[in-house]
Design a protein around this nucleic acid. Sequence first.
DNA 1: TATGAATGAGTATTCATTCAT
DNA 2: GATGAATGAATACTCATTCAT
Lengths: 173, 173, 173, 173
Amino acid sequence: LSDKKDTILSAALSLFAEEGYDAVSTYKIASRAGVSEGLIFRHFENKKGLLEAIVFDVEQRIQQVFAPMLSETSPEEVIRITISIPFHIEPQEYDFWRLQFKLKWQTEYNKPEKMKSVLDKLTWAFRYLHYPAPAMEAQFLLQVLDSVSISILRDGLEPSKKLKNFLLSKYSV
Amino acid sequence: LSDKKDTILSAALSLFAEEGYDAVSTYKIASRAGVSEGLIFRHFENKKGLLEAIVFDVEQRIQQVFAPMLSETSPEEVIRITISIPFHIEPQEYDFWRLQFKLKWQTEYNKPEKMKSVLDKLTWAFRYLHYPAPAMEAQFLLQVLDSVSISILRDGLEPSKKLKNFLLSKYSV
Amino acid sequence: LSDKKDTILSAALSLFAEEGYDAVSTYKIASRAGVSEGLIFRHFENKKGLLEAIVFDVEQRIQQVFAPMLSETSPEEVIRITISIPFHIEPQEYDFWRLQFKLKWQTEYNKPEKMKSVLDKLTWAFRYLHYPAPAMEAQFLLQVLDSVSISILRDGLEPSKKLKNFLLSKYSV
Amino acid sequence: LSDKKDTILSAALSLFAEEGYDAVSTYKIASRAGVSEGLIFRHFENKKGLLEAIVFDVEQRIQQVFAPMLSETSPEEVIRITISIPFHIEPQEYDFWRLQFKLKWQTEYNKPEKMKSVLDKLTWAFRYLHYPAPAMEAQFLLQVLDSVSISILRDGLEPSKKLKNFLLSKYSV
DNA sequence: TATGAATGAGTATTCATTCAT
DNA sequence: GATGAATGAATACTCATTCAT
């Protein structure tokens, strides 16, 4: 991958995350990336292609983030790791996650099946710990963490900081 | 308020909720509303003004929805009512709520202070019931309900139906 | 003539004079006149009709202004009166004259034949006073006075004040 | 500067000069220039920017035209050259000058300081020739020449042709 | 690979004008 | 006479995309 292709990708990522796909022009992306507008189309065919390239990267990053909990064998540890995730998003990755959440609202890019394995693993952990409704607990916890992530991405880590221990103790992990 | 002004408002509401503010053209809004494009600007000055008129309506509707829990005096009942809210969104109001959540992502329209009184009331209820960290419980519950609402708006009520009793029993209300 | 018709006329006059016919919208005229936009069309058929009504008034005012020199019988006095005209434009009539000069640039409204009688009278005066090229002197003087008027309308009377005596002495009148 | 940029400039110049800035649409300019409407905005940002680019050219041309009288050392010659200017406007430059005079009426583009050096030079010439009120003579002559120019641009050179010698002899140059 | 000029379809907005009341 | 809602055509301007270099 060429140098400039990456520059375009990261300029587009931050702009899409900040302002949304439709609100960002290819002109703006090219300006921020410091390249000509034409180059975007040489590398990505069209604007949508650029978005898809980014979405691909985002999905891979998500998989990386959930890899540790998927390979964990202790149920308590699975829950603990999962709860910790939102609280350890690195600031330089905020745009990554912001885009991820923004895209959830564009039906086209909402692929809930990608979280299937994570949901299954959590369900397994709750069942193992004898929770009465493990599938529901799993769904519930993921939704809570979604909300927490959104708060953190919106207002920064500080206001939600104490929630982590609160959640960990709520699940006794 | 004239007939056509309302038609524009509801056409715009549904389109903004479905496709997002930036993805919808005033031409499309006018077409769906069955009015001339110019009329949008006579009534709302510009596209943003139209959005703001809708946002105003949305905010008022939100207040209405939370009014009962704000005037409730029994703490258990406060929690019960609050949990019930997402499960009783009327289908014809889905667009209303979809837009509300979409706008949370546009920093400009994200006004967390609007939920202050709701948060305070919930905190009061949890404190009354001797929860160890009432403020955090309140924040936590609201975030859970946000997530639940998002699920329902995205996938319909069915997949989340059982969550209601699950939540009610979790809080013993 | 109704009250409101006059209000429209004077609002339009000042706006046309300030910003030019094409730069002024009927909405703006109606706003300044404090009437509904529709009323303009009830009274003047269309925007051009409004301009023509104003032009008619302007022309009448011009005639009034030149009436004294046309009926004067002393040649020196004819020249003296003519030279004095630009220096005695009343400030509340500036818009009148500004429009007059602006319209000279719109071929449609440039009617040089209206100045024929003035030109003839001046020529007569110069011939009477034995100027070698009376017709040319007349044309020349009128052009000078046009320029002086433009200066006064643009920058006010002050900077051109001393020009009056300068001109009078130049023609020994 | 590309070929098409110049085509736009000259199409706009002639249209602005003929019909006035506000009466000309960017569509019309693009049509006459034989380019896409969008190109106007790529080159000049907006319609006003296009006007300003033209104004800049006009101002430079004006400076060129007055350069010879500014560098002349004989006072008679200074006056002679100055008087000659309006009578030697080349027909292909009429639009240039028409726009110049039209813009004098748009306060925004009326910059009298541009003529300061010309006025000073003329004043010097008249003082040198012992005219009693040299500054006023200079102002007066420039206004006369303004008027003459306007006549020529409006009605062509023919009707004003004889004025040149009339003026030259009036000043004995 | 990379640019920058150029385009054509689209977009928000304005405007003169009409019409029912 | 007077208003205010409504329109349709036009207008300034944007945008994704193409293409010659």
